[in-house]
Simulated assay, not measured.
Amino acid sequence: MKCAILMDNGFEELEAMGPIALLRRGGVDVDVVSVEGNEVTGRFGVTYSPAVPMDDYDFDSIDCLIVPGGPHYKKLETNDKVKKVIRKVFEDDSKVLAAICAAPTVLGKMGLLEGKNYTCFEEMNKDFGGQYHYDYTVTDGNLVTGISAAAAEEFAFAIMEKLCGKEHTDHVKASIYYDAAH
């Protein structure tokens, strides 16, 4: 399985690092893709380098696109190239689209949450035409959404379960002594 995590400067580090680390731990290939340039820096100064510039990346080769939240969402929602990639993944039934915190609002403004169950940062939820749930993660078909940075682990495991199955995901959870009840 292969994922691309798409980010611009200002992304939320925890929402990127958690999924990258846990998915890689689970044997999933994760590529860091930047909107521009060969590095990308988060809102708290953490830089991923090297990153693959999105213009040089083959999004047809992925099984999943992950979009973390953070202040960069304002740039993403106005970037036509980013929206084109998101829509292409969303419309491909063989691919998973995952967005957390502020990032699902980008999908909502694109009309992609209509008729869907989803979550996002609660204060940013608008009438996106779907059913909002105040939960850490919500999976609806090939759409996985997360509520906030606090849900980064749950979000990563929801993606992993969608890509690799429950048994594999439970094995990875056990390997890090993960217990959702604590």
Rank of each mutant, 00 (worst) to 15 (best):
A151Q: 10
A21P: 00
A174I: 11
D80M: 14
H72Q: 13
K83E: 11
D60A: 14
N38R: 15
V82I: 09
C120D: 01
V172Q: 09
L97S: 09
G111L: 11
V172F: 05
G165T: 01
T145Q: 08
M124S: 05
E12C: 10
Y118Q: 09
F90L: 03
F59P: 02
K84E: 15
L97W: 04
L76Y: 01
Y132R: 00
D60R: 13
T78Y: 02
L6R: 02
M124G: 04
D56I: 00
M1P: 14
S175Y: 09
G108P: 02
E122N: 00
A103Q: 06
D60Y: 04
T47V: 12
D92H: 04
A152D: 08
G108A: 11
H168L: 02
Y48Q: 11
I147T: 13
Y132S: 01
D80W: 03
V46S: 04
L23K: 05
G111M: 09
V40F: 11
A102F: 03
N38T: 15
T137N: 04
Y57N: 07
N117C: 04
D92W: 07
P104L: 10
A99G: 03
N125R: 07
K95I: 08
F121D: 03
K109A: 11
G111H: 04
K166I: 00
L23T: 06
K95N: 09
